[in-house]
């Protein structure tokens, strides 16, 4: 399979060094026993030193940790886009555009609630494809309409423009946020086809799982809420678990929906225990936790199967995201007084 004029060897060599700097399991075990200030001090002696020092004067406690984690994540992912070229760049950027979605949503919410651009800027994670100057211009606009116009060179422009009328009618951000998410997910697999083998096959399989799990989560949430929502509006094309009509039908019957996921050849075994819990429990949280763990299992296979390919880079991206989520979960968990076992059981995915 051709991956165009890309440079996976170079990028993977750099990624291997970055991967080696990730926290090991024993680091998490140490962190779980520390308080927020201890965690910040620990981070100061690691990979996160620069961000902790840079933000230390403006933030403190867990906020400092969270903003330092976000900034570090943005730096690493930005580097990946800087290093990669051609087809590899395209494949990495597809996934990292989720941070563009995050940033645009955050800015739109800021405009909606008339929050100052300084405050909004703190919450951005500049790890996506949209360049800094566009983001800075977005931060300066006063209306959502102007924000959409500023994005006219991105893939989000058309979907946002289409959703804008509904936003104007309802006054709610839901159509704009859904349009952004849909644009991201539908672009993930665009033009990739269904390769049967090689690194792109694994990459596609992972992205399909991501879409399937997102569809499953949304379907379960819609089934539970009982609200009169059109399930088709929340269906993301590209997965293998549901077709649009299947999803629309299953949302009205919760038990059948769970059975459908359980009967899936691809995910049934991986999610069986979580699905059993889901039938009995009130909450979807444990099931979502199981979905996240299942995605990470995929990620682990990605790195080992094709070490010099986009799969290995994606595996690193997921491992880095997992690290940031785990450290944030530990720090926030400790801040709000969760016990070590609660943090280990419910938050940290090793």
């Amino acid at each position: 399979m051709s991956i165009g004029a890309s440079n996976p060897e170079y990028v993977n060599a750099r990624v291997r060094a970055r991967r080696a700097a990730l926290f090991a399991d024993e680091d998490y075990r140490k962190l779980i026993r520390m308080g927020p200030s201890g965690i910040a001090r620990f981070m100061e002696e690691t990979e996160y030193e620069r961000e902790i020092n840079a933000l230390g004067a403006r933030f403190s406690g867990v906020d400092l940790i969270e903003y330092a984690l976000n900034r570090n994540l943005a730096k690493h992912f930005h580097d990946l886009l800087d290093w990669s070229e051609g087809r590899l760049y395209d494949l990495i950027a597809r996934y990292l555009r989720k941070f563009d979605v995050w940033n645009v949503k955050t800015i739109i919410r800021g405009i909606y609630t008339e929050t100052s651009s300084d405050e909004v800027q703190n919450d951005l994670i500049r790890a996506g494809e949209i360049d800094d100057s566009t983001i800075d211009r977005l931060l300066e606009v006063d209306t959502i309409e102007d924000a959409i116009e500023t994005l006219n060179a991105t893939m989000f422009y058309e979907p946002l423009l289409e959703a804008f009328d509904t936003y104007e009618q309802t006054g709610a951000l839901v159509p704009l946020e859904n349009a952004l998410d849909r644009a991201f997910y539908e672009n993930l697999l665009a033009d990739l086809g269904r390769p049967q083998e090689g690194p792109e096959a694994l990459y596609v399989e992972f992205l399909e799982a991501e879409i399937d799990f997102r569809n499953a989560r949304n379907a379960l949430r819609l089934a539970r809420t009982g609200a009169d929502l059109d399930p088709a509006a929340y269906y993301i094309d590209g997965g293998v678990l549901f077709t649009e009509s299947e999803l629309s039908r299953l949302v009205t019957d919760y038990d059948e929906l769970v059975s459908h996921i359980a009967d899936s050849r691809r995910y049934g075994d991986t999610l069986s225990s979580a699905l059993t819990q889901l039938r009995e429990a009130e909450s979807l949280i444990q099931f979502e936790h199981a979905l996240e763990a299942a995605l990470l299992e995929y990620a682990d296979t990605l790195s080992s199967s094709y070490p010099v390919s986009v799969s290995a880079v994606l595996s690193y991206i997921l491992a880095k995201e997992r690290e940031v989520e785990n450290i944030r979960a530990i720090a926030r968990g400790r801040e709000v007084g969760l016990s070590e076992s609660e943090i280990e059981d419910e938050l940290v995915i090793l």
């Binding site: 995050w102 709610a172 839901v174 859904n178 849909r182 997910y185 949304n218 809420t225």
Partner: peptide, 13 residues
């Protein structure tokens, strides 16, 4: 779910 203002696709349970 749709009256809370946030997008459903990008959030969690």
């Amino acid at each position: 779910l749709d009256q809370r203002g946030y997008g459903i696709m990008g959030t969690s349970a």
